[in-house]
């Protein structure tokens, strides 16, 4: 496992978010992620973990606190938002592949449109990425013709094709059939060996144990516990973490 550097990639301080209906999803959540680090966020449903990582690429706004991603201070400035999104890739629970485009076109759409790179060059890279996630032979198919696990691997390749410095995973295996979880986790584990920074919301304990540098527990819109995996799972310092672990282990 590569060791993270000391350079900060994500710095979120006391982030608070309310929905228009008055519900407060984040109550002062803070997190720092260094370059090359793999951070797993766990926590009960409704704890705000998805909302939290969605603020990192401005899919959700927030009302209080500050977030800096790769040196860019997130504000309501639209140019800032576009800049951040170019650096941050996201993998969703529901894959969210574009069903009207072939697998290859799913990968090439954004680099061609956003980075203005020549299509032939992007396609070459896309083939290499599909090779890497093990589905190059499906490049001409449409997402609807693939299994869930294959779709999620395409989604990972699609995010990688933008060459992001940070990858966010929002419960990437939660809507997969059990036998497909492994193929996706393996791809993610290979990624973690590279230099890329990853923040992963997941319930996969094995992945958190063996791949993460740090595991974070969120509850009620706050970061409760933050520790190395070994400590997190064997000797957590908070009662709340112990209760959570009792439920899932």
């Amino acid at each position: 496992m590569s060791q993270p550097s000391s350079e900060l990639m994500i710095e979120a301080r006391a982030v608070e978010k309310w929905y228009p209906n008055g519900f407060q999803a984040l109550r002062g959540a803070s997190l720092t992620v260094r370059r090359g680090e793999v951070v797993v966020i766990m926590g009960p449903s409704g704890s705000g973990k998805s909302t939290f990582i969605r603020t990192f690429n401005a899919l959700e706004d927030f009302q209080k606190g500050s977030i800096t991603v790769d040196g860019i201070v997130l504000s309501n400035d639209l140019r800032n938002i576009d800049a951040v999104r170019r650096e941050v890739g996201m993998v969703f629970q529901q894959f969210n592949l574009f069903p009207h485009l072939s697998v290859l076109d799913n990968l090439t759409l954004a680099p061609v449109l956003v980075r203005k790179r020549p299509k032939a060059e992007v396609e070459k890279q896309a083939w290499a990425l599909l090779e890497r996630v093990g589905i190059a032979e499906q490049a001409g198919k449409y997402p609807g013709q693939l299994s869930g696990g294959q779709q999620q691997r395409v989604a990972i390749a699609r995010a990688l094709c933008m060459e992001p410095r940070i990858l966010l995973f929002d419960e990437p295996t939660s809507s997969l059939d059990p036998e497909m979880v492994r193929e996706v986790l393996e791809v993610m584990q290979n990624l973690a060996a590279d230099d890329i920074t990853m923040v992963v919301v997941t319930h996969e304990v094995k992945f958190a144990r063996h791949v993460a540098h740090r595991v974070v527990l969120m509850a009620d819109g706050e970061v409760v516990e933050e520790a190395e995996p070994e400590v997190f799972f064997t000797n957590p310092s908070h009662q709340r973490t112990r209760r959570f672990l009792d439920q899932i282990l």
């Binding site: 999104r85 574009f98 933008m162």
Partner: peptide
């Protein structure tokens, strides 16, 4: 069209 489609496109940096 599911909301996730727009989110996926936006998260890839599309305006």
């Amino acid at each position: 069209v599911p909301q996730g489609q727009l989110e996926a496109a936006r998260s890839l940096g599309l305006s």
